[in-house]
Design a binder for these strands. Structure first.
Lengths: 146, 146
DNA sequence: TTCCTTGCAAACGATTTGCATTGGA
DNA sequence: TCCAATGCAAATCGTTTGCAAGGAA
């Protein structure tokens, strides 16, 4: 989906649930669309030129995640990072920089993703888990830190 | 490696670096050996019957991780979880319960692990990352939460 | 009006640190 | 002896919440 399309999908999605798509929330979504990977509240605060106070940012993020529009990740460090939910951005995996904690996205080719799904299903079955999702994380040093 | 063997490896490893393997540190390592997956500081505090104050626990964990004996993970929630480093426990992956946040371990068959390594190397190269490791996380509901 | 949303400041919970004390080589 | 390790309490830091003010329907 493209930016405009995503924005519209979200508007409809929230309207159906009687939730307002306010300027602040829209700004958060836009900032996440532009970013190349999961962003922390502090990251977004910067990107939005501190126009939105951290407490409001946290509230918007929590609300959007609760509604199923954002996904929450805890990569390196102790900060939470958010990104658009996969039904909006597409399924993908992450690269995590061990040095600066930045996270980036990457996609697997279909065949590879299929293989992975197989492995995941097997592992889940063996452990008695009801599998809901999976994620492959590649850890290393990013371009700027290596 | 078996418990006794691991304990001895650690003793030697720390001795070589002029770091003491004290009772408290040994207790932390033992608790981690017994556990089935990554443990939080609070988990360990419980398991050790509160015999070791949290601040000391955190210090031991930080020191052992710094030395390369433990690995740190941030699964669900906002708590850090530790486990023995892979050179002691063997390479493996994790299952994370979306409900209670518990983490469990699982291993991939050699062939599967090899495939995964291939995918990881490719993704890293494309993104300009110097790859240091990877981890496959399976998310779902654990036996007790499903 | 009537909720929902926002901002600010205070509160929280996990983790860290200062400092005086203890313990091991 | 002498420095590393420990315990306690206070400090931090990311995040959450109470409450009064602002806004949209």
């Amino acid at each position: 989906m493209k930016e405009r399309e995503i924005d519209e999908s979200i508007r409809v999605y929230l309207a159906e649930r009687g939730i307002r798509y306010t300027g602040g929330r829209r700004a958060v979504v836009r900032a996440l669309q532009i970013a190349a990977g999961p962003q922390s509240a502090a990251d977004l605060h910067q990107r939005l030129r501190r126009a939105i106070p951290l407490s409001s940012l946290y509230r918007s993020l929590a609300m959007l995640e609760e509604a199923g529009l954002l996904a929450l990740h805890h990569g390196q460090g102790k900060v939470a990072r958010y990104e658009l939910a996969e039904w909006l951005s597409g399924h993908h995996h992450h690269l995590v920089c061990l040095e600066c904690g930045a996270m980036g996205d990457f996609e697997l080719e279909d065949k590879a993703e299929e293989q992975l799904l197989g492995l995941v299903a097997t592992a889940g079955r063996r452990a008695g888990y009801q599998v809901r999702g999976h994620s492959l994380e590649v850890e290393g040093l990013c371009r700027s830190c290596r």
